[in-house]
Amino acid sequence: MASVLLENICKSFVPGKPVLDHLFLDVKPGELFFLLGPSGCGKSTLLRILAGLEKQDSGTVKFDGVEISSLPPEKRQAAMMFQNYALWPHLTVFENIAFGLRIRGKKGSVLKDEVMSALEAVQLADCAERRIPSLSGGQQQRVALARALAVRPAVLLLDEPLSNLDARLRDTMRGEIVRICREREQSAIYVTHDRQEALSMADRMAVLQAGKVSQCGTPRQLYELPANRFIGEFLGDINFIDGKITDGKLLTSFGNFPLAGNSGGAVSGAIRPERIKFVSGDCNGAFEAEIIRETFLGDSGEWICRAGETVLAVKEMAPPPRRIGEKVFLAFEPGSLLAMK
């Protein structure tokens, strides 16, 4: 396990259009760190810079405090699990995994044991002699993970590794990756645009926007206290409520509400749908609203309600039946209405 420090990284493929713009990032040893962002935000480029497959225009990359920017890919000890797996089709599963180990001088029974151990970790021990094209997508995915883990890299780089899997296999693999990384205390940087993946697996995560880190922290911190509208929306459904902000309060057509967080410079309030509750009319802070649309999701439900001029989404678990046009009372959970810039 190694720490990773990226300082002032800049990269552009077209002059004047930076993909990474003076980016800073600090990953602690043994941490499963997620880079989250929309397509084109520079997260895969960042991973390739870490692997040495792209050269940054400026800035430094450090592993365990040692500058590695000038090292070629083969000297970096950063094993990557590629998005399309990049398994060598002319080699067997065993040979794919043994490749990196052989380069590191492993041979004979040691080599075999380590390959088999990596295969067992991904539950593919019986596939060692199979050819890559004969494997299913999920199996290929696991071979790619085993290949990256087998060399015991200082840093494991995962580039949207689950993007090609069906939902069920994806859930299983999420658990497997977290388990293996925790067991080995493996420092890993995981790139994805899937917020569920990031929120459910990450120790810490960073959201990239236009080549910069917009916010970095634990999943809970980012979800509950997003730094701006973009992060708020990117990490899940969120209501933005316009109004006048005075003395830490949001003044709206349907009531005045205290804002959490620093309201200086804020332009609106924001609240997650699950933080709005259906309440009785005499409840403190309750305001009246009308249900205008209902989406039944089985174990939960989502309602679109109109309060004054504002449309709000509300989520509730095990919801009772409600009808369109019904007048209801809603209330914000205390401290959940955020001041948003």
Binding site: L53, P73, M80, F82, A86, L87, P89, F99, I103, R104
Partner: peptide, 12 residues
């Protein structure tokens, strides 16, 4: 990526 992967795993 197949060649990049080889470089990534230590091959010159």
């Amino acid at each position: 990526e197949l060649e990049n992967a080889a470089r990534n795993f230590g091959a010159g």
